[in-house]
Design a protein around this nucleic acid. Sequence first.
DNA 1: ATAAAGTGTGCGAAGGTTCTCTTAATGTGC
DNA 2: GCACATTAAGAGAACCTTCGCACACTTTAT
Lengths: 342, 342
Amino acid sequence: MPSPATLHDVAKLAGVSYQTVSRVVNRSPNVSTRTMEKVNRAIADLNYQPNRAARSLVTGKSNAIHVLAFDIHNLRTLPAMQHGAYSQGYQLRLSGFQRNEDAVRDLRACLRDIAASQVDGMLLILPWVLVTESELSDLMGKIPYVVVGSSLGYGTNAVLVDQREGMRMAAQHLLDLGHRRIAAIQGIEHYYDAQLRQETLEKVLRKNGLELVASERGLFEMVSGYEAALRLLANGPDFTALVCANDEMALGAIRAIKSQGLRVPQDVSVIGFDDLPFAIFSDPPLTTIRQDFNALGTLGLQHLLSLIRTPDIAPHQRLLYPELIVRESTATLTSPTIKGRS
Amino acid sequence: MPSPATLHDVAKLAGVSYQTVSRVVNRSPNVSTRTMEKVNRAIADLNYQPNRAARSLVTGKSNAIHVLAFDIHNLRTLPAMQHGAYSQGYQLRLSGFQRNEDAVRDLRACLRDIAASQVDGMLLILPWVLVTESELSDLMGKIPYVVVGSSLGYGTNAVLVDQREGMRMAAQHLLDLGHRRIAAIQGIEHYYDAQLRQETLEKVLRKNGLELVASERGLFEMVSGYEAALRLLANGPDFTALVCANDEMALGAIRAIKSQGLRVPQDVSVIGFDDLPFAIFSDPPLTTIRQDFNALGTLGLQHLLSLIRTPDIAPHQRLLYPELIVRESTATLTSPTIKGRS
DNA sequence: ATAAAGTGTGCGAAGGTTCTCTTAATGTGC
DNA sequence: GCACATTAAGAGAACCTTCGCACACTTTAT
């Protein structure tokens, strides 16, 4: 078989018009059982598959969902999205781009391109605050979209984990353990999560009459956590607990702390954020805030699908709650050395 | 503007025929500079974007590459593929499926569906040996494809890292350190990498007049490495070195070893495979075999592109070489306890 | 028996491109 | 100033599908 079969081929074989074949394929009710059977047999014989491009041309739909993400590298929600889309009969398309000075221009170009390919909906992963709500809305035109993992405002459909609540739990956990001298390694500037986590940490401390002892910025990956921790330690370990904006940096930080002859958690308690797979196998196992990325991905896709099917739903956000996972990298404040100082 | 502009809209505005606009868009040489300018201005004014579906319908191409992968969860080659595709003007589509008893049927269904959407090429990530070379070739029809990370045979275009060489280096490293009693945690049965690594390990040992002391199977993730190590240790630590089929399992194994009051590397040397980001930050930092997943992804995409552009290239494979990264989880055999036993 | 409603099927058009062919306009050489 | 090659641009068909409309035929209600 050189070129794939078309509606016409099937029609000829089944002895009906090609429109009738179309009706069978699309499960139109107005077709008799007899002809349906004939047609189905012909379809099977020819191994007919509807041409997606032609279908898309006439319907203006594509049965595809586009995932646009910054930094695909740690796109932890992707598996759930893919699985959800596939099980609902949607194709998944993917594009991502880097964090650079042209990001907004890139985003614009990307969206133009995507708009031309008639996707039915988009999932946007924009950890970085780079467009306003109304800008995005303009760029997207009439394509339904859901922002996953961050929020641009109450007018945008979004699915996210309550970062404030997560950091509140982390901070409270350390306070409950008796820590008063707390330092932080925060995430990338302008990142939505990083900002919220840092803000909330400071707020909770302030409410308890405390301030951060010190704070360094990292890039959400291990090496930067290591380096940030070394910088913090350079001034002497004048803190008993270290809050890291994610698990990767926490892992780096733990290594830095150990390298200075200090112990985790006896000398410094360390808490992470995310609960990545390696967190439980770090030494010591990492206390952290779990975010359920699978749930996030699944929920994002569901939200988008409901938007596609019922376009005039009022914009709303779906919020997931994180969970404190206490392991062994945090402990009650006991070290006499540190106690003496505080 | 309710509906997006078409060739006809642009043509009307520019005062030319729509075919001329098409020529401008596709950079046909036979168009005068004057009209080209007029048309380009009109395109800009109307924010015209060619309709991909219509284009795809007539050309039979889609400017899209499909990545079909088992277990998207750890698709480390994806970022490079995405980046490569994007920079070459190709869209990336993604589908993945689970490892289950219906895998072959799923694969078949997936490929049928993909064939109908006229992708220009496919990248297949099939870590699991589940179809033969000729089966795959039949399923794919005339769509160009490259298998990434595994090899089905010499007739299939593939890009991969030399697993044998990697394991050879790992084994030799341990032998050079004086280890003679070596155990292994192997990967998932039927996985291409798992098989090759295990085979090679056994072969190298045999060549040196040795045999594996023990061997347990894991599932390529941390918990299973932990459990496999515990099983190995249950018979007493009658080995001085442990080869793990990947870093995740190595991390789990290290934890298990420590939990039994043994030290890494003093009592047991542990070596991993892959060199994932966390490997350098484990405690102790993990000696491992580095695979360059970015290079693998980039090369896979390049290979596919060259296939698309020059279809009658003879099938061939591109081989990357791994690298031994010596860190602190392996050491020379010194422990007298173990020495006494051997 | 007749009109109305319902069912199954065919016909033609449309959707936005690209491709081949044809025509008009321009330029070249003697 | 004429035949001829070359270049620029238009005309029409084709790609494969869905959708609205019309037609024929069967059933139901009056």
